[in-house]
Structure formats: structure tokens, C-alpha cells
Design a protein around this nucleic acid. Structure first.
Length: 657
DNA sequence: GATCATTCAATATG
DNA sequence: CCATATTGAATGAT
């Protein structure tokens, strides 16, 4: 292969059999998977029912009959109470799952059209993403459907897919909207617009309200938009803090709370005990002028009151300020709580406010409490347990990287020299060099005179907050020849690590990498630093003795997120990096067959050529302390150096290289 | 079923 | 950093 830069390097590397790329998966079992908190029953039968049995665990106050508010379906399926008889009355005639191939992925749109993308997924549905000219919708493309089974009850894969599609559309709309509003003004919210698309196409899950956990969502999962909670059925109102549903008790119906979002909006005091939450009722504020009056025992307030008396579980999502992206909020699913007591208080304006004391149910994984611990490690009020070195980079990164081991006695990985970035002694030759930009104040979206935007096919690849917006095979960042400042948004991968990372000993995969900070999907995490390995065309072999190799020439399963790319992620020319002797945090990232991190080639022009870098971005929102992993891919010669994969995912290929 | 009111959003800006 | 204005979507209530 020639080393010259092909100016058409963005084009797919060759014709691809699309039926293979978008191969329809085998019919997924639609058995809902439920966590098993103490005292809970979960249904996991080969014949799944749309009902979820969530009996509250006693004891109950005298005179209160426990009842079992089964999921109330919007499709007017019968509700029932378990104490009527042993037979729960479940309707076993579930709708037959629609074969996925009924919704075959449409043929991709005219190739190379940067303005047209649609969210196409291997599992057989697509959501059209609006283009620049017609931001409301685009009616041309065929659309499949998200089948009823997935809409009714989620599983991990379904929930992840819904969130992925949402994110994809939202980021794309953000990119278009930033460019548009910079010239025409009036920023319209991409998060809402994306939700609307998802809703109208029916791409959502757990779409009927239910009490208790929601399948496919784990305690500790994080969300960056209220709409995400809505789309996965965790909390349906787009703004309101209390979600409730009406449940039939013998002949009458009464409201019961299903979930709350605690965002600190009603100046509740945030006590030290993370298992206790004091929550204010809703209402009492005139939204227009901020005028206040007494809250009434209606809607959500009434529902919480009923849940208190019934002893029902309430899901709790905690809203926390995003320290990295200041004004926005992160929502942590903190699991199930029970309401312990309620009372009314006078607020500052002298109006009555309902108060509810909620207590977290025991036996659930750490979630909000973990955030609090991390906060203490950070501000020094508590020591990070099992800490070996506070900063293994010795200051080479802008953020310290802790080294910890709470598994065994090993004191650290084999020594290596820490380098924060990939250094080029000699850039790649390029026949075609553009001149750099003159964006002294940083590249701005919608600036048609900016050459960097042109190189990126008309739109800046990053948002104002530094989140990757495109799904392109190659990103052109500002380089040496550009006049943009180091903090230009088109230099995201050059600005260094923004998250507080730590290297830790895993249970069975040696050392690994994780983050104290929550990571928003699309965020830049780090680049692959190390020594460039000389490759003479075709004769490079993955060295068996070097497990710190990054080879951009490996084959990678196309991620669903690269919906518009019918080729696997590929660098424009061969690049092999060894981090054995020198490297950065990237060398500790382990392999997973269902990764939460992906890599992306990035090109920067220098005075006498181009430099290719490998940058890692988050595929989805990553909660704190969840291991960061990417797919190592398959080398051209996949016969040597095979290792057993322990990633444990449903899609595990069994081994990696 | 259409319309309205309610709601611990999310941004941009001063 | 906070306050304010602006634009808004889902859902239950009417």
C-alpha cells in the first residue's frame, strides 16, 4: 500500500456486501431479565408475559393490605391482584415476536452524501436523521419498526440500543443546529427534537409504567438528559419530578408513584446518609412568575402518599451537577426506595410544602453513594482505599492517574516510561496539503470560510463542549499550520485527558483502566501513545511478545454507532504503535467484545506532512468506576497470539488478539 | 379525541 | 458563579 495520502481517504475502502454487514441477527429471546432484590420475585420464563410481578415485602402497617400493582398496560390488558387467587391471571398469549427480517435494513442512501444519515442498525430498524436542508424530517427513506416486544419489555441490549440511537440522533442534530444557529440564531433543542423522532418512530422501550426495577437498566446507570429516562421507561414525564400511575384496587383506582427524580430544585437538604432522601412534593410554584402558594394533595403528591401507605417501592434517580460541563445535570439511577414518612412544612414564602422521607432498600449495588465517596477522594476528605501511587504519570497528564489494587498484593505493572502523546519524528508524506485555518478565536460552526470545516465535510466534528458529533471514518483536527488556539474545539484530542482516571487491578485480566468521573457518550478519553512501529508494506506480524500493540490495520466489527459507515473502522494508512516501553493510560485498556470505548483515527497536518493519531471516545455514557474497554479487533494474520476472552458479554467471540 | 395545564429541562446570555 | 429569558415535549386532566 502506498503511503501517500489519498485525498479520497474518506470513501469506503471498497465495495461491501451490505447484506453481510447488516446481517439480520438470530431472533433474540424476549425473556425479560429482572434483577432479584431481596423479597422480589422475578419472572424469567421461556414464555414471557408482559406482566411484571413486584410484590412489596412486608411488614405492613396494621390495616394495610399489601397489593400487587402489576404493570398496567396502555393496551388495556387486564390488571390483576395476586391476592385474588393463586392464579395470577396472566395472559400467556403474548404477541408473537415479529421476525426481525420483516424490517430489513433499507439500502443505504446515496453514498458520500454527508448531509444524509440515518440511524441504521444490525437488528433491523432505522430511524431517519434529518438533514441540513430539512431539519424536521426526511421522508424519503424506508423505515423499519422497533418490534412490539422490545417496546414493551426491555433487556440490556434493547435499552442500550435505544439509548445509542437517541444519542446518535441527538448528536447529529446538535451538530446541524450549532451550524445553523450560528448564522440564523435561535438555538433549538436537539435533545427534544431527537426524542420526538424516537417517539414517533416507536423506538423506545418499557413503554408501559411499572413499579419496581425496569428491565435492561441497572442500578448505577447514568443519563445526561431527562428524555433518556423517558425513552427507557425509567421515568416518563419530561420535566416533572414525580411519575405515577393509576392502579386498580378492587373496584376503585388509585394513583401510586413509580419513580421520582431528585434534582435539588426545591432546596432539600442533602444529608450525609446517602440511603435517605428527603423529597419535596410538586406544585406550589407558578412557573411563569415564580409566585408561590400551598401545595395540594393531588397528582404526584397524592401518589407518593398512597405509595407510603401501600409500602410500595419507588425508583429514584438522583440529579447531580455535571462538574465537567457546568450547567447541565447527570442523572444516576439509584435503585428502589420506600417512603418512610411524610409531613408538610412551611417554605421560605410561608407556603405549605409536602415532604417525603425515602429510604433506600438494602442489598442494591452502590450508585449515588459511590459518587459521594469519589467526591471525598477528590477533595481529600477521605483516602482512596488500596492506593499504591497517587499519580503514575508523575505529572505528565493534566489530571493525576491513581494506581490502585484491592485484589491482591501486586504492587504495580511492569515499569514503562510514561508519555502523554504519540510523538512523530517524521510525519507521513502527503501529496496534498491544505493550508491551515486562520481561526484565531477557534473554529466556529457555520463558518463557511474555515478550511478545517471543509475538510470535515462541512461540519465541525465536535460540539461546543468537546463531544464527538460525527460518525466519520476520519476526523481532521487543526494542526501545526492552523492559527487556532490550543483550546480550539477542533483540537479536542490534543488537549489531553480531561477525566480523573485510575489504573486498577482487575479480577482476572491484569491491570485495567477506569474513571472516577462519569463519562458522557462521545467524550474524548485519551489517545494511544507509544512508539511508532515501522511497517514495511504487508510484512508486519503482530508480535506475540508484545501485548501493548495497537494496530490500526486490524479488522473491526462495524459498531452499530457507525451506522452510516459500511466499512469497518480503518485508518487511512498503516499505523502500528507499541506501548510496551513507553505509553500512556491507553496501554491499560483491556479488550471487550461489547466495549464502551471505541477508537477513531484523527489526522493533523504539520508543515511537511500529516500525522495520524488514534483517539478513544466513549460509545455510551459510562458510570464512574466502570472499566473502560475497547474491541481489539482481529489482525490480518489471526492465527497466532490468540487469547481467551473473559469479557463475559453476550456477544463474546470467545477470544481476542 | 382535541386542547390545556402542569412540570425539580436545557440552553444561551448578561 | 447565579439569575433570567427562551423554547419546549410528554403526559394527565379537562
Amino acid at each position: 500500500m502506498e503511503q501517500g495520502l489519498n485525498s479520497d481517504s474518506n470513501a469506503p475502502s471498497g465495495p461491501i456486501d451490505k447484506s453481510k454487514v447488516y446481517a439480520v441477527k438470530p431472533l433474540r429471546s424476549l425473556v425479560p431479565i429482572f434483577p432479584d432484590p431481596p423479597g422480589m420475585c422475578s419472572i424469567s420464563t421461556p414464555n414471557p408475559t408482559p406482566f411484571v410481578c413486584v410484590p412489596p415485602s412486608g411488614p405492613f402497617p396494621a390495616g394495610v393490605q399489601p397489593f400487587y400493582p402489576f404493570m398496567v398496560s396502555n393496551d388495556s390488558q387486564p390488571t390483576t391482584t395476586k391476592n385474588q387467587s393463586g392464579n395470577t391471571g396472566f395472559d400467556s398469549s403474548i404477541p408473537a415476536p415479529v421476525p426481525l427480517n420483516a424490517f430489513r435494513t433499507p439500502t443505504p442512501h446515496v453514498n458520500g452524501d454527508a448531509q444524509n444519515q440515518s440511524g441504521q442498525f444490525a437488528s433491523g430498524f432505522s430511524v431517519p436523521v434529518p438533514d441540513a436542508d430539512n431539519a424536521s424530517n426526511s421522508g424519503k427513506r424506508t423505515r423499519g419498526q422497533f418490534d412490539d416486544g422490545r417496546r414493551a419489555n426491555s433487556d440490556k441490549d434493547t435499552a442500550a440500543t435505544v439509548l445509542l440511537v437517541y444519542d446518535l440522533i441527538r448528536r447529529r442534530l446538535t451538530q446541524l443546529e450549532e451550524a445553523r444557529s450560528n448564522t440564523s440564531g435561535g438555538f433549538r433543542r436537539p435533545d427534544l427534537k431527537a426524542t420526538n423522532l424516537m417517539m414517533t418512530k416507536g423506538v423506545r422501550t418499557n413503554n408501559s409504567k411499572r413499579i419496581g426495577h425496569v428491565p435492561g437498566i441497572d442500578v448505577g446507570d447514568i443519563f445526561f438528559f431527562r428524555m433518556e429516562l423517558c425513552l427507557v421507561g425509567l421515568h416518563t414525564p419530561s420535566m416533572a419530578g414525580i411519575d405515577y400511575m393509576s392502579v386498580k384496587v378492587t373496584v376503585n383506582e388509585e394513583p401510586v408513584a413509580v419513580s421520582i427524580v431528585s434534582s435539588g430544585g426545591y432546596d432539600d437538604d442533602d444529608g450525609d446518609d446517602t440511603n435517605v432522601l428527603i423529597y419535596s412534593g410538586q406544585g406550589g410554584v407558578q412557573r411563569r412568575d415564580g409566585q408561590m402558594f400551598d401545595q395540594k394533595l393531588e397528582r404526584g403528591n397524592l401518589a407518593l402518599e398512597k405509595s407510603l401507605h401501600r409500602g410500595n417501592d419507588v425508583r429514584v434517580a438522583r440529579g447531580i451537577k455535571d462538574t465537567i460541563n457546568a450547567p447541565s445535570k447527570i442523572y444516576v439511577y439509584d435503585g428502589l426506595y420506600k417512603i418512610d414518612e411524610s409531613w408538610t412544612e412551611k417554605n421560605k414564602s410561608g407556603c405549605n410544602v409536602f415532604k417525603y422521607k425515602l429510604i433506600r432498600q438494602p442489598g442494591q449495588p452502590e450508585a449515588y453513594s459511590l459518587w459521594k465517596s469519589i467526591q471525598q477522594w477528590r477533595d481529600g476528605t477521605a483516602a482512596r482505599p488500596a492506593l499504591i501511587i497517587p499519580d503514575l504519570t508523575s505529572g505528565a497528564e493534566t489530571q493525576p492517574v491513581a494506581l490502585v489494587n484491592d485484589i491482591d498484593g501486586e504492587k504495580g505493572p511492569a515499569p514503562f516510561s510514561y508519555v502523554a502523546s504519540l510523538k512523530y519524528s517524521q510525519p507521513f508524506q502527503s501529496s496534498k496539503l491544505f493550508s491551515g485555518c486562520h481561526c484565531v478565536g477557534g473554529c466556529q460552526p457555520g463558518d463557511i470560510s474555515c478550511p478545517c470545516i471543509h475538510k470535515n465535510e462541512g461540519l465541525l466534528p465536535y460540539s461546543s463542549t468537546g463531544v464527538l458529533l460525527t460518525t466519520k471514518p476520519l476526523i481532521h483536527e487543526c494542526g501545526q499550520t492552523c492559527q487556532s488556539p490550543p483550546n480550539c474545539r477542533n483540537r479536542i484530542s490534543q488537549a489531553g485527558v480531561k477525566f480523573r482516571l485510575e489504573v486498577f487491578k482487575t479480577k482476572n485480566q491484569g491491570w485495567g483502566l477506569r474513571s472516577w468521573d462519569p463519562i458522557r457518550s462521545g467524550s474524548f478519553i485519551c489517545e494511544y501513545a507509544g512508539d511508532i512501529v515501522k511497517v514495511t508494506a504487508g510484512d508486519f506480524e503482530d508480535a506475540n511478545d508484545d501485548s501493548y500493540i495497537f494496530d490500526a490495520g486490524r479488522y473491526y466489527e462495524p459498531l452499530e454507532r457507525v451506522h452510516n459507515s459500511n466499512s469497518s473502522m480503518k485508518a487511512p494508512f498503516p499505523l502500528v504503535i507499541s506501548a510496551k516501553n513507553s505509553g500512556n493510560v491507553s496501554r491499560f485498556m483491556n479488550h471487550s467484545c461489547s466495549p464502551n470505548v471505541f477508537w477513531q483515527p484523527i489526522l493533523r497536518e504539520s508543515n511537511n506532512g500529516v500525522c495520524l493519531h488514534i483517539a478513544f471516545f466513549a460509545i455510551r455514557h459510562i458510570p464512574p468506576m466502570q472499566e473502560l474497554m475497547y474491541d481489539y479487533g482481529i489482525p490480518a494474520k489471526a492465527d497466532r497470539g490468540k487469547k481467551k476472552c473473559l469479557c463475559g458479554s453476550m456477544k463474546c467471540r470467545g477470544h481476542f488478539y
